[in-house]
């Protein structure tokens, strides 16, 4: 059985980035290989010049949701970048940028944070995902 977990990360708000980082880190801790494919706003969040800036929250968060997320961060909850960096240190986590999204956003790999391992197209993504599960966020 192919145990690889592939996460397509399309969204670029901090709550969804955090959810994706949690899923990736959990799978890595269980010893599963993890692939993350960055598209559109998910990719945009990995720009080297803004990865640790405020990426906002999903519209449904509202003011109360925003306050809860801010309180969790103040209480010391790891940021999504910290969670991903830890997951990469401890397990097999490969992060690839979607080549079409790179074109749309006019990005080169040198514009991206070092968390990103490379650039690939959708065929390579599917081949690498194998028979494993694919999660879209």
């Amino acid at each position: 059985m192919d145990e690889t977990i592939s996460i397509v990360l399309f969204s670029g708000t901090d709550d969804k980035l955090q959810a994706a980082a949690t899923l990736a880190a959990g799978a890595a801790a269980l010893g599963k290989p993890v692939k993350i494919f960055l598209q559109y706003w998910g990719l945009n969040a990995f720009r080297a010049d803004g990865i640790d800036s405020d990426h906002g929250l999903s519209p449904e968060a509202g003011e109360a949701g925003k306050a809860s997320v801010e309180a969790a961060a103040k209480a010391g909850q790891a940021s999504w970048t910290q969670t991903l960096r830890m997951a990469k240190e401890l397990g097999e986590v490969d992060i690839q940028a979607c080549s079409a999204s790179m074109e749309i956003l006019k990005l080169k790999q040198s514009d991206l944070d070092s968390l990103v391992d490379g650039v690939e197209g959708v065929a390579a993504f599917y081949i690498n995902a194998g028979e494993g599960q694919i999660v879209f966020i």
Binding site: T22, A29, M86
Partner: peptide, 8 residues
């Protein structure tokens, strides 16, 4: 620490 940090 909240999930997933304990297992990490």
């Amino acid at each position: 620490l909240s999930c997933p940090l304990p297992i990490l």
